[in-house]
Nucleic acid binder design. Sequence first.
DNA 1: TGTGATTAGAGAGCACCGCTCTTGACGTAA
DNA 2: TTACGTCAAGAGCGGTGCTCTCTAATCACA
Lengths: 232, 232
Amino acid sequence: MNASRTARERVRAELIKEITDIARRHLATAGAPGLSLRAVAREMGMVSSAIYRYFPSRDDLLTALIIDGYNALGEAVERADAACAAGDFTGRWLAVCRAVREWALAHPHEYALLYGSPVPGYAAPQDTVAPAVRDTAVYGRIVTDAHRAGRLVPPPICPPPPAVLAEDAEVVRSLMPGVPDDVVTRAIAAWTGLFGMVSFELFGQFNNTITHRAELFDHNVTCLGRLLGLPE
Amino acid sequence: MNASRTARERVRAELIKEITDIARRHLATAGAPGLSLRAVAREMGMVSSAIYRYFPSRDDLLTALIIDGYNALGEAVERADAACAAGDFTGRWLAVCRAVREWALAHPHEYALLYGSPVPGYAAPQDTVAPAVRDTAVYGRIVTDAHRAGRLVPPPICPPPPAVLAEDAEVVRSLMPGVPDDVVTRAIAAWTGLFGMVSFELFGQFNNTITHRAELFDHNVTCLGRLLGLPE
DNA sequence: TGTGATTAGAGAGCACCGCTCTTGACGTAA
DNA sequence: TTACGTCAAGAGCGGTGCTCTCTAATCACA
């Protein structure tokens, strides 16, 4: 009973993997709006309706791709961080930034799915929340480690954050325990700045303007790291 | 001859305006992928094919909406800047940032069209370039004015930009003449940081995390302004 | 003022989409 | 052997962008 059931389950799991693989390939060429269940089915030699046995709707297929995307990006970021000396906080920050950018450049449509305009009518289910913070968790560890090592010295150029932000800071602090509010808000600024850079480059805002994008990126995220208080 | 021709032309212009208005309304509810020529035609009491008399393709309609969007945002930014005292550079920067954010919050799908994931298969024609830099031009004037007034004092926390960025800086400098490379790169960082903040908020990255978004936004763009060297 | 040229909308039609429903084949457990 | 759950197939619904042809209105000019 168990053997036969797992046999079926195994075929099912393989088909699901094949579907998501093909869907990811289609996503990479046509983008999220152009992702078509029928086209995926055609490529699998299936009839379109058969896909619904595996994904009850197009949105569920999208959800699977989103979760895979967050995990892939998170893994890339984790790998980049792990390759650095634990005490080289500036190096870890730069490595994480580069990992984000390089993953985004290699998978532009997946990045757009994660950090670009939301797909209209699609509401991300709860399953996407955990993988979504994998990269941010790495970032939080870097900030925490640097802070604990006493190497996080924010330059005194920002006003203190308004008191009302304390409760939001408390939530973010779950990713960087013990870090003071001022650093938390700077950390948010640096993180959003990183994704602002990547999005600008990827979404075409640098067209006809910036040619040395890697160099500009490195330089700017370095500045953001300094703003955050990372050592030189 | 002229009068009659303009009569026809006038009707045509009015119809074009009506089409784009309806399209913009549809865009505001269904987003770019959901923008449907047929739905627009239906609402106008026309048959779908009639729209093609005015816009040869869906892409041309999108282009019109993009140009209108850039102009609307640019105008909002210009108005916000003009409402400030010319010598209050920090106030002008904050006003511009707020104008961008508020326009984006009021027109999320239009913002997504301009600064979100590019529409797959759509290539922005040259007509969109000029309106696209209207907001950036205002920003450039603020930086230039502050620099000329000697009020732009970048804190010495960033390394000097690598020499290879000089040629890109030269291009950007057309918007902020006379400003040194170091400030140009910081200006880019602040500008991308601004849009990173807006995009994160609008595209859902702050969900379940940040509740006092206006306050965080104000605080963070203020930090970015300080990084740029704007006075307190 | 009448006429030929131009422009407009209507409608049918093509190929595609996501999605739903029913039908029949198949393997498995009782 | 029978009964059940799973699955592929296919038809069909209403929608999409876009093209084509046909007719009606409008315009420019003789």
